[in-house]
């Protein structure tokens, strides 16, 4: 009996070793360890043995059962692992194939520049005011210290709709509109982005429609040095930390004193190149201290408050910042142009 058991064990282990599929292993398990299997049968015949031999033989049979079972488990694991490996191998892909693009659009470069500037000024406590594109002569000119017949009106030939209304030539009318609503109570801190229109023939540097961002701050003790400080933050944010600014005297009817702001050339750093026309400086915007007539007409007392204002052109800023050579690109909407402003 003992021999028979040993033989069975040898047989089973050999068969397990040779098995090549899970099915075979299952068959072997049923054949050797099943209720009708030879070991069960041997154990059934143990009644014929002596009481002494019986436990010994039982022990041996159980050991053999365990050995076979263990071997079966072992082999199953090996085969399962191989099967998984086989499956993984089959699932292998060419990871260099292009990914499935999430096709997104992006905003127009002018919106990009405007929002960047908006966010900068929001951070400084300014809010964003928007106003009508068709304006009255009063808000566009007169309230800005530009009475009818003022020679400075030549500077910006305009599109009139009627004698008293026109397409705004700047976003400055919102200065008066905003201040009027406040009944002389400051502070006023706004920026005004928007479309403006001038009687120009469209070419590489002129556009009859373009964007402007006006800024206005009015309050007690607002100084020109504050204007310089605010514009310096702006220049560094838009054109890089190393930028320096300079203010040059200029003239606008709605500010006194008036200035123009240059930034040190971001291309050459100030040593002179084609971008800055060898001067080291690039003209960016105009501004100044709000003219007392403007304050007065909008209900503020120039004895009590002062203010600064500035106006800049997002097209110009975008052209400088991104090296765009023709202002018409902003309005032809060539998708190859707009798509270039996708990444940060």
């Amino acid at each position: 009996m003992q021999e028979r058991l040993q033989t069975l064990k040898e047989e089973a282990l050999t068969q397990i070793e040779a098995a090549s599929s899970m099915k075979e292993l299952q068959d072997i398990r049923v054949a050797y360890l099943g209720k009708k299997g030879p070991i069960t049968e041997i154990l059934r015949g143990m009644g014929k043995l002596s009481a002494e031999e019986r436990p010994k033989m039982g022990q041996l049979a159980n050991d053999i059962r365990a050995a076979i079972s263990e071997k079966l488990d072992e082999k199953t694991q090996v085969m399962e692992k191989a099967a998984v490996e086989e499956k993984l191998k089959e699932e292998t892909i060419d990871i260099t194939l292009p990914g499935r693009p999430v096709k997104k659009g992006n905003h127009h470069p002018l919106t990009r520049v405007i929002e960047e500037i908006e966010d900068l000024f929001l951070g400084m406590g300014f809010s964003i005011a928007e106003g009508p594109e068709v304006e009255t002569d009063y808000y566009n000119f007169e309230a800005l210290n530009l009475p009818k017949d003022h020679p400075a009106r030549d500077m910006q030939d305009s599109f009139y709709v009627t004698e008293e209304t026109l397409l705004r030539t700047h976003t400055s009318p919102m200065q008066a509109r905003t201040m009027e609503k406040l009944n002389g109570e400051g502070p006023v801190k706004i920026i005004v982005p928007g479309k403006v229109y001038r009687r120009d023939t469209d070419d590489a540097t002129h556009s009859h429609q373009f964007m402007q961002i006006e800024g206005l701050m009015v309050g007690e003790d607002v100084r020109m040095s504050d204007l310089k400080g605010v514009l310096q933050s702006f220049a560094k944010k838009m054109f890089g930390e190393e930028r320096e600014i300079r203010l040059r005297p200029s003239f606008f009817p709605f500010t006194e004193p008036s200035v123009e702001m240059d930034i040190s050339c971001f291309n050459c750093g100030g040593s002179g190149c084609s971008v800055c026309k060898s001067t080291g400086w690039i003209e960016i915007l105009g501004g100044g201290m709000v003219h007392p007539n403007v304050l007065r007409m909008s209900g503020f007392d120039p004895e009590k408050v002062t203010g600064f204002a500035f106006g800049m052109g997002p097209e110009r800023i975008a052209m400088l910042k991104y090296g765009i050579d023709d202002i018409r690109h902003f309005y032809t909407n060539d998708s190859r142009f707009i798509k270039q402003f996708k990444h940060i």
């Binding site: 406590g125 801190k189 309050g219 310089k228 605010v230």
Partner: peptide
């Protein structure tokens, strides 16, 4: 000089 405005703070 370049200074920053000293006015009451406003939420932007």
């Amino acid at each position: 000089p370049a200074t920053l405005p000293i006015t009451e703070s406003t939420p932007g």
